[in-house]
Design a protein around this nucleic acid. Structure first.
Length: 651
RNA sequence: GCCGGGAUAGCUCAGCUGGUAGAGCAACUGAUUUGUAAUCAGUUGGUCCGGGGUUCGAGUCCCCGUCUCGGCUCCA
């Protein structure tokens, strides 16, 4: 066998993974959870039958973690079956740090049930029985899984049988479960676990299938690591934008206005205004033209575009015109709250004849759109029903497409860089050929997808291709980040569209004098201001850089006596273009500082008698403390630099 | 939309098995004049989410609804 360090060791045929681990070292043997043999993860009890490169997996390896949590999941299943004999276990799987197992039960689990299950799991773990792998023909597998019928397991067995795959089960004591494996050597290795929550989950993730009860757990080798993990989760929750948004008076959502409709408070608006100005500047430099369009449009427009037919269910119902006092549901033209800005921009494109000399034609608008998202999906600022996209549509010739595409991608990267976002992934959302929700022809899709692939490769970017993640009119490049609860959200997006130009019969006259069809690029570097700001709040934990901070500077007089001078300093701040405040309360300076720190004001100007006499200020920087005294003019100059917006040229 | 949890002062939360609602912070008033993360005292503040029901009596128990949270599903 070949070890990960390249060393080659001779072992007798049939040596088990456990044997290999012992050969390498006692410590490794104790930590070992599974073994990787030529890239495949196997049980430690599996014998090696031929030469192979091997690697012992412990909790330090992602696959090792999965094995530990998977085994804890089987301990969970056994505990549930011990306590709820009528339950039917369905399937389990892991994601990130969690493992879940779905059960069909007569009634959902309560908090008390979970306590009992967890206690029983502890007993099963402490009994430390081995996990034993059994490979069986289908009928025997059905038999060994027990006398009670379990439609889920039966379905899985017949599916495995149909595909001609090996059917494996794992036995732990008197409990046997259908399972691919691999597992830790024994239940004693299930580690320190905790049941995190329960939830309803559909069988096969399909809404039309029965809803099962899902139990989530996490597990670590030691109690200490588990506690650390739980503490980390608690810490992360403090960044939650819904909590910080309220604490810092950034936004509010009132049920009286409507679910999922964000009200930007003055401080949140200041932050958003700054982001808008930042982007507007960049768009001007990049050759975009700004436009404004209304919030509604005729239903027919969205029939042509395809939005209405494709997404009827997730829109606010159309507004229908009717005579006052008339009962007839009239008829004709309804209006739709716009779900997207593209049709309006297309009409601007069409308003004047276009030649190849007009292209690329780039229209930008901070356009507000409305989508009737499912109530269970709404979440703070990240999933809402009305939001403003930093939208633009570029109408280009085939020759221009990839170059323009590359520039829009670079624009998104510039925006993310300017806000210190390093932690995102790029998703290339492609059409799912088996779905009928896409418009246009397969050739158009193939072309669009290869355009995107060329551009991403040209920019040497890492990306993952995902089928079924495209828009109905074209494939897209999405910039995806995680929130404080580790959920993924799409922020920026760049999309290639051959479909809408065709549906609207868009044209331009080429240099050859012939009529041609332009291609559209849809793109939004922030995505929407709502979601972006929500994520931004969590990203900075509410402590925004000075250029974005709703209050950039606060003047803190030490004694009332210096109030006149403090007002002068405050005025100087406003005149220098800073969003400033003056704390006139007759409190001790420590208290005023504490308030400013708590409210995450980045710059504090402390003025006492000493500063007033010399026309100076003592500068304090948030979370860094006292920066010393400097003359007023110098301080203002420094503050202006500190609060400067990032620009394209020097970043 | 589905499953489960929750909703008490502006905020965070207490209120045992039903007996007329309480704390801290904030706000306000006054005293204090303070030198880099909490000065003291006082005052105000509640449709206990809404609507029904059970009961002599409901914040507390039951039903319906609304909103919200965690999942699932969805996400142009």
């Amino acid at each position: 066998m070949t070890l990960p360090d390249g060393a080659v060791r001779e072992t007798p045929c049939g040596t088990t993974g456990k044997g290999v681990a012992e050969l390498v070292g006692k410590r490794l043997a104790a930590d070992a959870l599974a073994i990787e043999v030529d890239g495949r993860v196997r049980d430690l009890s599996a014998p090696l039958e031929r030469s192979a490169s091997v690697r012992i997996l412990t909790f330090k390896d992602p696959q090792g973690r999965a094995v530990l949590r998977h085994s804890a999941g089987h301990v969970l299943a056994q505990a549930v079956m011990d306590l709820f004999p009528g339950a039917a276990p369905a399937a389990g799987d892991w994601s990130d740090e969690r493992y879940f197992y779905d059960f069909q039960v007569p009634r959902p689990f309560t908090a008390e049930d979970l306590e009992r299950i967890e206690a029983r799991m502890g007993e099963i773990r402490d009994s430390d029985v081995p996990f034993e792998r059994l490979e069986l023909p289908p009928d025997q597998a059905l038999h060994i899984l027990g006398p009670t019928r379990n439609p889920f397991k039966e379905e899985m067995i017949s599916e495995l049988d149909r595909r001609g795959e090996t059917i494996s089960c794992y036995r732990q004591g008197n409990w046997v479960d259908l399972c691919l494996g691999p597992h830790a050597p024994s239940t004693g290795r299930a580690g320190a676990f905790k049941l995190l929550m329960t939830a309803g989950a559909y069988w096969h993730g399909d809404e039309t299938q029965p809803q099962l009860q899902r139990v989530y757990l996490t597990a670590f080798p030691s109690h200490k690591e588990l506690e650390e993990y739980l503490a980390r989760i608690e810490e992360a929750k403090k960044r939650d934008h819904r909590k910080l948004g309220q604490e810092l008076d950034l936004f509010t959502i009132s049920p009286d206005v409507g679910q999922g409709l964000v009200l930007w408070m003055p401080k949140g608006a200041a932050l958003r205004y700054e982001l808008e100005s930042f982007l507007r500047q960049k768009l001007m430099e990049s050759g975009y033209q700004s436009v404004y369009t209304p919030h509604i449009g005729k239903l027919d427009l969205y029939r042509t575009s395809g939005h209405f037919p494709y997404y009827k269910d997730s829109q606010y119902p159309p507004i229908h015109m009717r005579e006052h006092g008339s009962e007839d549901d009239a008829s004709e033209e309804g209006y739709l709250l716009k779900p997207m800005n593209c049709p309006h921009h297309i009409k601007i494109y069409e308003a004047t004849p276009k030649s190849y000399r007009d292209l690329p034609y780039r229209l930008a608008e901070f356009g507000t759109v409305y989508r009737y998202e499912q109530s269970g999906e709404l979440s703070g600022m990240t999933r809402v029903r009305g939001f403003t996209q930093d939208d633009a549509h570029l109408f280009v010739t085939p020759d221009q497409l990839e170059e323009e595409l590359a520039q829009t991608v670079e624009l998104v990267l510039f925006v993310l860089r300017s806000l210190n976002f390093g932690d995102y992934r790029i998703r290339f959302g492609r059409r799912d050929p088996s779905s009928d929700k896409y418009g246009g022809h397969p050739e158009q899709w193939d072309r669009a997808e290869s355009n995107i692939r060329n551009v991403l490769r040209g920019l040497s970017m890492d990306f993952s291709e995902e089928l079924g993640e495209a828009a109905f009119y074209g494939p897209k490049i999405d910039f995806v980040v995680r929130d404080c609860l580790n959920r993924e959200w799409q922020l920026g997006t760049v999309q290639v569209d051959y479909v809408l130009p065709e549906r609207f019969s868009l044209k331009y006259i080429g240099s050859d004098g012939e009529v041609h069809r332009p291609i559209m690029i849809h793109r939004a570097p922030f995505g929407s201001f709502e979601r972006f700001v929500g994520i931004l709040i969590e990203h900075y934990a509410g402590a925004f850089p000075a250029w974005l901070a709703p209050v950039q500077a606060r003047v803190l007089p030490v004694v009332d006596e210096v109030l006149p001078y403090a007002r002068e300093v405050y005025t100087a701040c406003r005149l220098a273009g800073l969003r400033a405040e003056l704390d006139e309360r007759s409190e001790k300076i420590g208290y005023k500082i504490r308030s400013a720190e708590t409210e995450k004001v980045p710059l504090m100007l402390v003025v006492g008698k000493r500063e007033a006499e010399r026309r100076a200020v003592a500068l304090r920087v948030r979370s860094q403390g006292d920066q010393g005294v400097l003359p007023l003019e110098e301080a203002m100059a420094r503050l202006v630099v500190e609060a400067a917006r990032p620009s394209g040229r020097n970043s």
